[in-house]
Write a protein that binds this DNA or RNA. Structure first.
Lengths: 263, 263
DNA sequence: TCTCGCGTTCGGTATCACAGAACTCCGTTC
DNA sequence: GAACGGAGTTCTGTGATACCGAACGCGAGA
């Protein structure tokens, strides 16, 4: 677990264990976990595990499903997730435009915020295609192999990019993956020139993604909007207009959140 | 905080405090809370508060926003909420139909699951109207003053209804509110007859809601679907067809999740 | 019927969560 | 510019308590 801001010292052990428990249950997926399974994964005594689980359950963070009780993620998480989405004003403002963008392109569109240079997707509108992209919300995604990530990175200086892009992550997922920091930097130069970023099967085979940055009232890059689709659907003939469309929407969203630099 | 399933004994105090902290931060809304504000609300020492907050933050459940650090709900909650939504197969299956329903009616449509007789909304598609209904997801709503709640209640026996509907909650929010258990029961009889439930300004002035139950493969009531709109938009002329539409969609969803009782 | 594995309860103990005091670092005021 | 107040942070002692292990009850298979 990466510590985003804070140090390890002066933390509450039992709280951390409870949160690890949520992680474990989340990873278990649909099937959920039994008490003993949880205790084994967390390397705790069953009795301690139950105390923590009951606490989480009484707040709705876990849901206990009889019989032979199995633990699932609780609906309180749904409520809090909804709260976060509502509170993030960028998401609130941009969502109608995401729907429009998907309507217009037929592709899955997503909105990412800029969290210290990393893209964190906070809204998603699924496209018409039968393929559903597994794109979890709320977690940091790869900065250099997603359209949104590259759109955000392109707004930063070279030394910041070097700090954010972890050399260990520059591995070849596909034939097109960027595997050196120099390749990333030169790609970002291109993004700066045209205003949008293309992930041409760099993150996953057969998947293309176009992203463009969103600027807030103070000129800072607040995030990015992107569309994702299959290579077979996004032919060379449509990629040009698609980029123009995404860029237009990113500018619309920027304008909505008060950016006046445009025009 | 109601204890859903578990008893108070054998819980972990520090975990409960941490979760209360999340509640407090959630209630604080956009502005977030400072460390001292949290400490005051939770009646804890600042140092203890900070330890808990740091633990939550290191797992992404809180987000620390400099300067003069203010604490907000973290994006991990978004991720978990998304996970819950994905895992709840009813929501996954019904969402496209909710979109259709909103498309067809122009109203906000919602999907509730049946949690021990209470409606818990897990999906929402906002209508075209300029009014946005504040309808949080993931928490138990009133069973007797919402369309979805009444649709679910109507599938239960009288003694179960008496157990679920708290007499203390039978207060008059509006002139149309049902204020006695007998009024509720007789209303439910009507719901059983026609198959759908109407909340005619019972929960809030000027707001009408039509709900219909969803049945799973085993014939149990899995939840309900409902549409919500302003009284001025839902005239007497359209309410009839609207009810038919909602009922039709509830049957479609029932069919999709494997209910074979229909036709 | 016996047994195994599960969830649950309970009591003792070492841990660690907590409070409080001390400290630093602002911004404000006199 | 010094003094002040209020903020966040660090540190330490200690008593509450989170944890473990053992025992219990129960249902499902064998």
């Amino acid at each position: 677990m990466p510590n985003l801001v804070t140090s390890d010292r002066y933390q509450v052990r039992s709280v951390a264990r409870a949160l690890e428990m949520l992680e474990a249950v989340g990873e278990s997926g649909e099937s959920g976990l039994s008490l003993t399974e949880m205790a084994q994964r967390l390397d705790m005594a069953k009795s301690s595990t139950m105390a923590a689980a009951r606490t989480l359950a009484s707040f709705g963070f876990l849901r206990i499903e009889a019989p032979g009780p199995r633990y699932h993620l609780g609906f309180a998480l749904l409520r809090y997730g909804d709260l976060v989405a509502q509170m993030t004003s960028l998401g609130k403002i941009a969502l109608p435009l995401l729907h429009e963008l998907t309507e217009e392109t037929g592709l899955t569109s997503r909105l990412a915020i800029n969290e210290e240079g990393y893209p964190v997707f906070i809204e998603r509108v699924d496209g018409r295609g039968s393929v559903r992209f597994h794109t979890p919300l709320g977690q940091r995604e790869s900065p250099h192999s997603t359209g949104a990530g590259k759109a955000i990175l392109a707004q930063l200086g070279e030394e910041q990019v070097r700090r954010i892009v972890n050399p260990d992550d520059l591995v070849a997922h596909t034939a097109n993956s960027l595997t050196t920091i120099d390749a990333v930097l030169s790609d970002l130069k291109h993004v700066q020139l045209v205003g949008y970023a293309i992930d041409n099967e760099e993150g996953a085979e057969g998947i293309i993604c176009v992203g463009a940055p969103i600027f807030s009232y103070n000129g800072h890059c607040a995030g990015a909007v992107s569309v994702t689709g299959l290579k077979v659907d996004i032919t060379q003939r449509v990629i040009g207009p698609l980029c123009t469309t995404v860029l237009a929407y990113s500018e619309k969203i920027s304008a909505l959140i008060g950016n006046v630099r445009l025009q």
